[in-house]
């Protein structure tokens, strides 16, 4: 395992986009950083600017208003970065799939690396998802 991959997986700065969620997923994301779960143990930090991000956490149902802006943010993130779809809304549109305002699930818009289903997903589910992703990245190549 080379140093670059170690560094990339040991220090993940997370930028969080809400593309029209009901705000429950967002609260669960913040739960991961509280003393009970404390993701800073693994170097995971929530940061303020998309330019510093290594992972995009995208929550909510993709609608016509938010998708162009979300794409813009994705283009601003320095690569390599991973995209995580948090919540059933982002994974598969959930109960909004027949709505006139929906564009489609997240993976039809951006390349998604990790799906975390749940409404909202538990912090444990998110942590286990991140662990799986990190192991996958470390094993790759």
């Amino acid at each position: 395992m080379n140093i670059k991959k170690t560094a990339l997986t040991k220090s993940i700065w997370v930028f969080h986009i809400s593309a029209g969620s009901c705000n429950n997923c967002d609260i669960e994301i913040l739960d991961c950083l509280t003393p009970r779960f404390d993701l800073e143990r693994f170097g995971i930090q929530l940061i303020g600017s998309a330019r510093h991000a290594d992972a995009l956490l995208i929550t909510g149902a993709m609608n016509r208003k938010s998708v162009p802006r979300m794409k813009k943010v994705y283009e601003q993130v320095p690569k390599p970065c991973v995209v995580v779809a948090v919540g059933t809304c982002a994974c598969s549109q959930h109960m909004f799939r027949d709505s006139y305002n929906m564009i489609g699930p997240l993976d039809e818009i951006l390349p998604v690396d990790l799906y975390i289903p749940g409404c909202p997903p538990k912090p444990e589910a998110m942590i286990s998802g991140i662990v799986k992703l990190v192991t996958k990245i470390r094993k790759s190549k």
Partner: peptide, 11 residues
Amino acid sequence: MDIIKLFCKET
């Protein structure tokens, strides 16, 4: 790790 990671990222 943070510093090394930032060196590996795109500018």
